[in-house]
Design a protein around this nucleic acid. Sequence first.
DNA 1: TAGATTGTTAATCGATTAACAATC
DNA 2: TAGATTGTTAATCGATTAACAATC
Lengths: 205, 205
Amino acid sequence: MEDHSIPDIIVGRLPLYLRGLLYLSQEGRSVTSSQELGERLGISAAQIRKDLSQFGEFGKQGTGYKIDYLVAQLRQILHVTQVWEIIVVGAGDIGSAIARYQGFANHGFAVRMVFDNNPAVIGIEVGNFTVQDAVILSQAIQETGIKIAMIAVPASQAQAVADKLVEAGIKAILNYAPISLNVPSGVHVQNIDPVTHLQRMTYYL
Amino acid sequence: MEDHSIPDIIVGRLPLYLRGLLYLSQEGRSVTSSQELGERLGISAAQIRKDLSQFGEFGKQGTGYKIDYLVAQLRQILHVTQVWEIIVVGAGDIGSAIARYQGFANHGFAVRMVFDNNPAVIGIEVGNFTVQDAVILSQAIQETGIKIAMIAVPASQAQAVADKLVEAGIKAILNYAPISLNVPSGVHVQNIDPVTHLQRMTYYL
DNA sequence: TAGATTGTTAATCGATTAACAATC
DNA sequence: TAGATTGTTAATCGATTAACAATC
């Protein structure tokens, strides 16, 4: 069947498969197996095959998966065949590091604008961008039609920024502020908080 | 029972509970309920109660949870009653942002040293730190007994760095490089990769 | 052909939710 | 007491694994 709603936990693994395949490709490999990929990623071969089978039949019995082909399929499934433009809100240390990050290129993303509301920061150069005044944030989102934003402002301002982004049409938020954002259904949020990641590990130490 | 092995998925939610409780506390609240906390975090009340019940009985029927008490208990469970010192490897944009990040204070962590292997970077100041030569990395880990490291080097060097860290005694790694690290059992890894987080959302766009 | 590996089924395992007695 | 909310049980739901026929 093809019109199942795919569990989010499976969707979350697809980018890992894609990344693993790209490294294999870089190493000059053209074919791989669920077992080999699984060993690289720390995921069982059965799970990889099961996950992929939700979307189609991409391999061949006896030989495995043609890497270039599976990469292309995963990119289509994940909607990263074109480049998504991104707005960064907050030009402090984290926002600046994101704006300069070279890792988005060739993976479906490009930072397009950087905003802040601090007069001391507005107008300075960050990477290839001039920090813009956050008062024109909504207007810029509506004019460009950009759907993805990253929040890199202090936690105290993050919910207000999220509300503004959503109202202007943003549909996906990567949130670097250490707070749980409340957004309407239909808007997606992923959180990156080093403290919660670290605390998850100290439990075991 | 008390000597169950706790599922990692539950351990992963405890830092979120802790963070939510701290915000409630900051707002002057002294008592909360599983329902209220759940609404804040987007987690069901039943799940919060069930998770907490793995570790003890922290609430009172009819009234809920005393916030300060539950915060203290969660800190003990997560082993963040004292400060864990951290080594940052890689003093590029990301490593520098981490080294300057103010959000670790009061949450159980403190960056202690920053390393790089690039002669152009060694010796410069990043936040309150002087970037040190990575050749003394192992020695520094062994002398200080530090158990937690963050990897903020290019993907091509990340596995080699991880191997070196593990050999020197590191037990928990927060990995900012976009690659799956292989480490021995007993060493914990958490990954922070904006690209995989973004691709997980573009699936739905 | 013989060997390898897929896609898929069925079984197992684990996580979440609903519901409620207990009790503050 | 009446109302509220916990801790826990049982039921439901979902995810993972094992195994294998199909087939390259």
